[in-house]
């Protein structure tokens, strides 16, 4: 039951970098009360707390996965900065600009613009499942987690980055073939 005790920053970063998805739950639990307090004090609801925690943890996951990520503060401080930025952004969107933000921390690049123009995920998901696990891992690590080829090679035990590149190309090619079996270019060209 390793889930039930607190983890140190180093442990969490290592687990994220190993791709251990269970660490997401640890992050959620460890940061819940802090985010809850902040969001509730700033016109948020419990649903906002949950949304913000999810968004923040996803963003943290992507940032920490990157090779160049260096932590120069406590992880909780870093995470709080991320969630605060996300929340302020959301408030700005909702035109609720009365939140006092005295301690603007490190800027965070939030991922947005996940819209897929005509064809959406539910059409492509069946194709992905036909690809196989290796392809899915490589593509997900590269296009979502933001790992470079070197990191993917290390994570998935490939001998060098050339293999990763070749595999990635083959996988994409296969996916495109699968796509054209069911759809045409009109489905994605706007």
């Amino acid at each position: 039951m390793w889930l039930w005790y607190q983890k140190s920053d180093e442990e969490i970063i290592d687990l994220i970098r190993q791709g251990d998805e269970e660490v997401l739950k640890v992050l959620y639990r460890q940061n819940y009360s802090m985010v809850r307090k902040y969001v509730i004090e700033n016109k948020g609801t419990l649903q906002d707390v949950d949304d913000l925690l999810q968004d923040g943890i996803i963003a943290l996951w992507k940032n920490v996965s990157k090779r160049e990520f260096r932590l120069d503060a406590k992880l909780s401080t870093y995470f709080f900065a991320i969630t605060k930025n996300l929340w302020l952004k959301q408030l700005r969107k909702a035109k609720k600009m009365d939140v006092t933000d005295t301690h603007e921390m490190a800027a965070h690049k939030a991922t947005d613009n996940n819209t897929i123009n005509k064809i959406d995920l539910k059409n492509i998901k069946p194709l992905l499942s036909e690809l196989g696990d290796t392809c899915n891992s490589i593509l997900a690590l590269f296009y979502f987690d933001g790992l470079d080829n070197q990191s993917i090679a290390e994570r998935l035990d490939f001998s060098n980055t050339g293999v990763v590149k070749a595999k990635k190309y083959q996988c994409l090619k296969k996916l495109k073939v699968l796509f054209y079996q069911k759809y045409s270019k009109e489905d994605f060209l706007s």
């Binding site: 123009n117 997900a140 994605f188």
Partner: peptide, 19 residues
């Protein structure tokens, strides 16, 4: 455009899994 669509789908699929 196709590449972009597929790549976004891959990312979205992964994100949904983590969520």
């Amino acid at each position: 455009e196709l590449h972009k669509t597929l790549v976004e789908a891959i990312a979205q699929n992964r994100e949904n899994h983590l969520r």
